[in-house]
Write a protein that binds this DNA or RNA. Structure first.
Lengths: 239, 239
DNA sequence: CGTAGTTTTGAGAGGCGTCAAGGAGCGTGG
DNA sequence: CCACGCTCCTTGACGCCTCTCAAAACTACG
């Protein structure tokens, strides 16, 4: 085992209600522990994997924060998602045995490595796990479709409001505040994800502050009026 | 068996190289034939399923053409994809046991019904099928990410060019022309998919015609210069 | 305390949305 | 067989949202 690998157990992980082991019984969990045999630490700013890398494993975020982004030959790139604790990264690699995107740590992070052939083997044994894997992939598809809705039919204010609400909702599910958050990504990364320029992101933040909906101090955001944000998302002043 | 159900067999289907049975051996194919026991006909303009409908099955397009779209409470909607022969519809329903989008036939169509619990059962028996199901879901995720790239970072001309190239490439894989196609969807549906208004779609078509890149007569499109379209996609005059 | 990276803010431009009118294709019915 | 109405498509004029370019302020970090 190399220095970056650490022996771990799902059964003793406090994320098991959020992560892959969700809903497994003791026997299944024991089996899973044998599959998920190592963790990997990723330093801030460095890749967990890059597009083109051979696909071998899925990764569960144990701690830290990631972005995934696709890149075209001509240098365009697009952030396709931000992943936090308990979320699964790497599903894009299954189809072609190579990753189709980059996964970059936005802060020092740790992931559980789940060799995919072993996940497949185990999910042939346990219906629960099999179905859970399918649900995780389906959830990603549904999420992507809602991002397509956002990118295709919302204007800047609506996009940013939806983004903040989504972020704080996921953080809340992990025991954090419903109204305060620290952004782990830059304005440019937010803009890439939301299909807008960093200047527009910044201006929209400022507008929300002027309107008394949020407070912003650099990466810190305090949501003062959740209902107002929800109204902005549904303002339907869309194109 | 009701009137809209027809007994079928994957093993004798001329789409088996494109569709779910891809790569299965004879024994596996026989088993699959028992699972995919019926077809359903869908009239143009009517839904295969609607969001909120209970999820029971995946559907393989046997003939015809579909769109899928997500809808918000406030009436906004977004076409998330167009599905043609051999493509799989319904993956969005797995995560919550209910469909998250509408699937509408754009012309009279026929689908093979694949009860998902049986697909899961069979893929516990056959590694090939299991892996293939995973690949299909992963492919959808990768596709969605490329649409996010399109919506997030391309301008109108680039989007439409990319759309046409994608469409004709998929049609070509099904034995149709590389340079001619009939659009099965309206300008409005194209616009919804590409995040632009129908007027902009129309104007962009006209510009391509003026530039001598394509010919358009209503739903008929003739691509006169594929390379020019590719250059437009990569023109990087993006925002 | 200097330097690089990030964020904010302003001014100006342009791409695309909005509104509106007219044309083309097609099914229906007299 | 043609008239009619409906849907879809095209085109024009105008305006606004967001991009672009630019400069300055702030923060982090060596």
């Amino acid at each position: 085992m190399d220095a970056s690998s650490i022996k771990v157990a799902c059964s003793s992980c406090n994320l098991r209600e959020l992560c892959l082991p969700m809903g497994l019984n003791t026997e299944e969990m024991d089996k899973l522990d044998q599959v998920i045999s190592s963790r990997r630490r990723i330093k801030r700013g460095t890749p967990l994997f890059r597009h083109g890398d051979r696909f071998t494993s899925l990764y569960a975020v144990r701690s830290g924060f990631f972005k995934t982004c696709v890149t075209t030959a001509d240098g365009r790139d697009q952030v396709t998602g931000f992943q936090m604790t308990g979320e699964i990264i790497g599903l894009d690699g299954i189809v072609s045995d190579h990753h189709a995107c980059d996964a970059i740590a936005l802060e020092d992070a740790e992931v559980c490595v789940m060799p995919f052939d072993q996940v497949e083997q185990l999910s042939r044994e346990f219906t629960t796990l099999q179905h859970h894997v399918h649900k995780i992939m389906s959830r990603e598809i549904v999420r992507d479709h809602s991002v397509m809705l956002l990118l295709g039919s919302m204007r800047a204010e609506e996009r940013l409001a939806a983004f903040l609400l989504n972020l704080v909702q996921r953080l809340h599910a992990r025991g954090f505040s419903q109204s305060e958050l620290i952004l782990r990504m830059t304005r440019e990364e937010i803009g890439s994800y939301l299909g807008m320029k960093l200047e527009t992101v910044s201006r929209t933040f400022s507008k929300f502050v002027d309107d008394g909906v949020i407070d912003v101090k650099q990466r810190y955001v305090h949501i003062k009026d959740t209902e107002a944000l929800k109204r902005i998302v549904n303002s339907q002043s869309c194109r």
